[in-house]
Design a protein around this nucleic acid. Sequence first.
DNA 1: TAAATATTTTAGGCAAATCTAAATTATTTA
DNA 2: TAAATAATTTAGATTTGCCTAAAATATTTA
Lengths: 225, 225
Amino acid sequence: MENLSTTEENYIKTIYHLQQTDTTVSTNDVAAKLNTKAASVTDMLKRLNTKQVLNYEKYKGFSLSNQGEKVALDIVRKHRLWEYFLVEKLAFGWDEVHAIAEELEHITSKVLIERLDNFLGNPKFDPHGDPIPDSNGKMQTQPQINLVDMPIGETASVSAVGSQSTELLELLTHKNIAIGTQITIKKKFSFDHSMEIETPANSSFTISRELALALFVTIKTPSLL
Amino acid sequence: MENLSTTEENYIKTIYHLQQTDTTVSTNDVAAKLNTKAASVTDMLKRLNTKQVLNYEKYKGFSLSNQGEKVALDIVRKHRLWEYFLVEKLAFGWDEVHAIAEELEHITSKVLIERLDNFLGNPKFDPHGDPIPDSNGKMQTQPQINLVDMPIGETASVSAVGSQSTELLELLTHKNIAIGTQITIKKKFSFDHSMEIETPANSSFTISRELALALFVTIKTPSLL
DNA sequence: TAAATATTTTAGGCAAATCTAAATTATTTA
DNA sequence: TAAATAATTTAGATTTGCCTAAAATATTTA
Ligand SMILES: [Mn+2]
Ligand SMILES: [Mn+2]
Ligand SMILES: [Mn+2]
Ligand SMILES: [Mn+2]
């Protein structure tokens, strides 16, 4: 039943991620994400449709089939486990791992990924705070909110980042913030939407709206990582 | 200068391995190893020639260029480091790792393989006893001889296996022989070329000519693994 | 709702990697 | 050495994945 090329897998994963955020996914959306052209996407949609991983009707739209979603979750699982490996075992920063995981996620061995999972201690979240699906595609849902939406006086811990850029990591490192760091909101300034926060490592300091938007937090203490 | 597809890399590696054993490598040899047809090989030889990794003259023959050999050694390095990782960290048997390493060897990141090497403690030999090239393509040469060529009374340690089959591993496991095991030749029988040997774990026992042919030994104690 | 605009699909073509069948060249053998 | 045989290459197709330009359809806007 399965015999998908790396390219087909990348399309499936891209469509999956787009479906998570946007309600409808367009041909152009996929083309933009994959740096390709709409015509190429249409070609692929037809192939994925015949391969049963996609429901597609021309000019009407498309969405992953149940089977396609399973495939996508499997790729996401591999991607995030490899990212975890790279950061935890090979000492990469989380801004460096995405491109490498983009290749590693296509290694086909089923038993490899199960042993890797085991070797890593069955982590539930990747270095960016994103949940790692288990072998059945199930993943832990953390009730996350954006830092800008946290009320004054509340404390929560950083659970995910909204960007994987080196620039963000540099800033977070400088401010001693990482995934797991406890943050308390002290004050919000309406002029520039900057906010004053407090962490265990540092007394009160100010962060910009841009930075706050890139941070997601959970009220409960994080289960792992 | 470099921009080789996975397929091109596989051809280069195959030609490299064939050159190690046979003096001349033919189009048919390559076709046989890669489970493809001679015509396909010719197509590829022409492409590798224009890509400067191969010296090729039609109907005359071909061999890897210096550059091609460097590429080959880099792939071999990756292949063997990943095999080492799979056996030492993920508890695979050495009969299970080849196919997986066949995929992993094509992951492109240079820094990944250097960090993996470091993480593994810079091993010099893979799980089959084959030397791992360093980042410059240099590898340790072990003066190996086949077990059948060892004189009676001599002691040496197993340094490599001539086959990666599950069947061989099963037999070796049963006889308590692994890479590193010390073997002393007690007797040789000319009738069936079987031989009586001794190991630290077992007193004298007999092994077949087939098994002896699949074992390589070094007189000096092994430097690693 | 009709025209303008945006999106999507088709048509036709290209490069990589493969194949089969036929032609060419090299090697053996009688 | 000439014929037979073997090895290699070429010719011509196919599949995957991608492209541009043009056509078809959907959506927006006046
Ligand atoms: Mn990918
Ligand atoms: Mn991630
Ligand atoms: Mn390979
Ligand atoms: Mn090996």
